[in-house]
Amino acid sequence: MNGRLAGRKERGARGEAEAAAYLQKQGMSIIARNWSCRTGEIDLVAEEEGILVFVEVRTRNLNATYGTPQESVNARKQWKMIETARVYIHRHGRHESQIRFDVVSIRMASDGELTELTHIRNALG
């Protein structure tokens, strides 16, 4: 694995850990991390007051020129999240659960320091 990819994976894992810690401080329970199936992966599956929450975590460098982390959750990614959430609901018998899709946007400095965390509830509608 080249250094750039390893750095990106490490940054992504750190961002997911920061997001999980933040959501737990907000009173959410983390049910699963990196849950995957044939349609894709959900970074975090959480529960808040009986609502099943599917969370996409996007982590970027502070000086990234590719836009904000939340802007990278495009229509294709949203479709994949919805399809993957459907599989999760089916496999876990959560058909009666209320659901929500959130995005946690994280920016980090080049030294790995967390500089900004934004939690967007109901990000997909």
Rank of each mutant, 00 (worst) to 15 (best):
G3Q: 13
R4S: 14
R4N: 13
L5D: 10
R8V: 09
R11Y: 02
R11N: 04
R11I: 10
R14E: 11
E16V: 08
E18H: 12
E18V: 10
A21Q: 13
Y22S: 11
Q24G: 00
K25L: 10
G27E: 06
G27H: 02
M28S: 10
S29P: 00
I30L: 08
I31D: 07
I31Q: 10
W35A: 06
W35C: 04
C37V: 02
R38I: 04
T39C: 14
D43L: 09
A46P: 08
A46H: 05
A46M: 04
V53D: 05
V53H: 05
E56D: 12
E56S: 14
R60W: 00
S72N: 11
V73D: 00
N74K: 07
K77H: 12
Q78C: 12
K80L: 07
T84P: 09
A85W: 01
A85M: 01
R86H: 11
I89Y: 09
I89H: 06
H90G: 08
H90W: 10
R91H: 14
R94P: 02
E96Q: 15
I99C: 12
I99D: 08
R100H: 07
D102V: 01
V104I: 14
S105I: 03
S105L: 01
R107K: 15
G112A: 03
T115H: 04
T115F: 00
E116P: 01
